[in-house]
């Protein structure tokens, strides 16, 4: 049974001067525990898809169902990590991280320990009492990631979560997030510009077209690669051929534009 379904979803941004069609007829579905990546040129509507699934915007056409219920009515916890970190500058790190539980009136006292531990795991030790302005871009991004994870969502929407990180940290965090998601059997959608990251982390990769955004092609990641953690996945013999295929696909779309 599918967990999340997008059924002929289109989205327009309206303004008084006209409209932009950001998405055109997007249909796909995810099973529970599945990990899907979205790849595509800038402006093809990846962030738009995530915002719709997160229930922040309503699509202008089509249906989005979560466990067969309309997404707007579903009370299921969704964790959305936006493209920019949007940490609240007037809250310190620990209060930022515990924002989700606070909104749900969950006791944050017990979660504090977990939060500090999780911060440590992403390589941020002893930052809990600092304020976001004193952190670097990569550090802030990791805080935003922890903020999303601690909320314990059933489905995770990650919009370029590792884009501001150095390569080493990025690989480590890919491992950590991959492990967490597998262990807790979470469903996730990852937006990325990094083909390697998409292959290493996901079960399926959706390559998108721009103007308007639509799904161009779907790549299944071979089971052998999936079984490896992201770092080792990159060394698997089947990794490179898939990488090349996706590269070609994206490259040909670049070519179309000219």
């Amino acid at each position: 049974m599918s967990f999340l379904t997008l059924d002929h979803v289109s989205h327009h941004y309206f303004s008084k001067d006209g409209y932009t069609k950001a998405l055109h007829d997007i249909s796909f579905s995810l099973k529970e525990g599945e990990f899907v990546s979205l790849l595509g040129p800038s402006g093809c509507g990846k962030s738009t898809i995530l915002s719709i699934i997160a229930g922040i915007m309503k699509q202008t056409q089509g249906k989005v169902l979560l466990e067969n219920k309309d997404i707007q009515e579903s009370a299921l916890a969704i964790g959305y990590m936006l493209q920019q970190d949007y940490l609240f500058p007037w809250k310190n790190i620990i209060d930022n991280v515990l924002l989700g539980p606070k909104i749900h009136n969950k006791p944050t006292v017990e979660l504090k320990e977990t939060a500090i531990q999780l911060l440590q795991e992403v390589g941020l030790k002893g930052v809990q009492d600092q304020y976001p302005t004193s952190l670097s871009g990569g550090m802030r991004q990791r805080v935003a990631l922890v903020r999303t994870l601690i909320y314990d969502p059933k489905i995770l929407l990650l919009d370029e979560p590792f884009s501001a990180l150095d390569y080493q940290t990025k690989l480590k965090l890919e491992d950590l997030v991959g492990k967490l998601l597998k262990n807790y059997h979470k469903t996730a959608i990852l937006v990325t510009h990094d083909i390697g990251e998409a292959i290493a982390m996901s079960d399926r990769i959706l390559v998108m077209n721009a103007n308007p955004g639509s799904i161009a092609k779907v790549f299944e990641v071979p089971i052998e690669i999936r079984q490896n953690p992201p770092l080792d996945a990159r060394k698997h013999p089947k990794y490179q051929p898939l990488f090349d295929k996706i590269w070609e696909e994206l490259d040909s779309r670049e070519g179309d534009k000219k």
């Binding site: 922040i56 009370a75 964790g79 936006l82 949007y86």
Partner: peptide, 12 residues
């Protein structure tokens, strides 16, 4: 910045 509200809305 409406994105702060966006973050909060994503938490419901």
């Amino acid at each position: 910045d409406p994105n702060y509200s966006k973050v909060l809305k994503s938490f419901g």
